[in-house]
Computed example of a mutant assay.
Amino acid sequence: MADTTQASPKDEKRAQRLAHQITAFAKSHGGSAEGQLAHIGRGTVRIALVGANGEWGTLVAPSQETGRRAVEIAGLTLQDDFDGELAAKVRTGPYEWKRMAGIQLGGPRNT
């Protein structure tokens, strides 16, 4: 049986806006990107993005459906998990290392 529910115009507009941001991220980080969707609470979904150059970022969609629609519109390749191959592509810089180590290395506190 086919799903006959249609997204509201507001949800479609949100998906279009997110797709535009995904496309812009990919374009400015090596021409392509991969991603992963993860539920983060109260129906919201994190779209984790990893560009071809290893740069990464995240976007938040108000629902699973909106996130999936945005990814579909943008043509983003999705991975099941943010580990293994996808995590290995992430390039971290000094800022991330300082934030991850924080107190242990005398860097800024994670507050």
Rank of each mutant, 00 (worst) to 15 (best):
S8M: 05
D80Q: 11
R69K: 15
Q6C: 02
E96M: 07
R91I: 07
M1I: 14
I103H: 10
T4A: 08
G106P: 04
G35H: 04
L105E: 09
Q104A: 15
E96I: 06
Q104L: 14
S63T: 15
H20G: 15
L18Y: 07
E72A: 14
T4K: 10
I103N: 09
G41R: 05
A87G: 09
P9A: 13
G102D: 13
A87K: 10
K27W: 12
A52Q: 15
G102N: 13
I47Q: 03
G35R: 06
I47T: 04
E34R: 08
A2Y: 07
T77N: 01
K10P: 00
G31D: 07
H39I: 00
T66P: 01
V45F: 00
Q16G: 05
A15V: 05
L59Y: 07
A19W: 10
A101P: 00
F25S: 02
A52V: 10
F25E: 04
A61M: 09
D80N: 14
I73V: 15
A38Q: 11
L18F: 08
A38S: 11
L49F: 08
A88Y: 00
E85I: 03
S63G: 14
G106L: 10
Q104V: 14
Q16S: 08
A7V: 03
R109T: 11
Y95K: 09
D3P: 01
W56I: 02
Q64V: 12
V90A: 06
E55S: 12
H39R: 08
R99H: 12
E65F: 07
I40N: 03
L76D: 08
I40F: 01
E96C: 06
L18P: 02
E72V: 02
D81Y: 10
Q79Y: 14
K13P: 01
M1C: 12
D81P: 00
G84I: 07
A101G: 07
I22E: 03
T77D: 00
G107P: 02
G57I: 02
A24H: 14
L78I: 04
L105S: 13
W56H: 13
T111V: 05
A15W: 01
T92H: 10
R99C: 00
H39S: 13
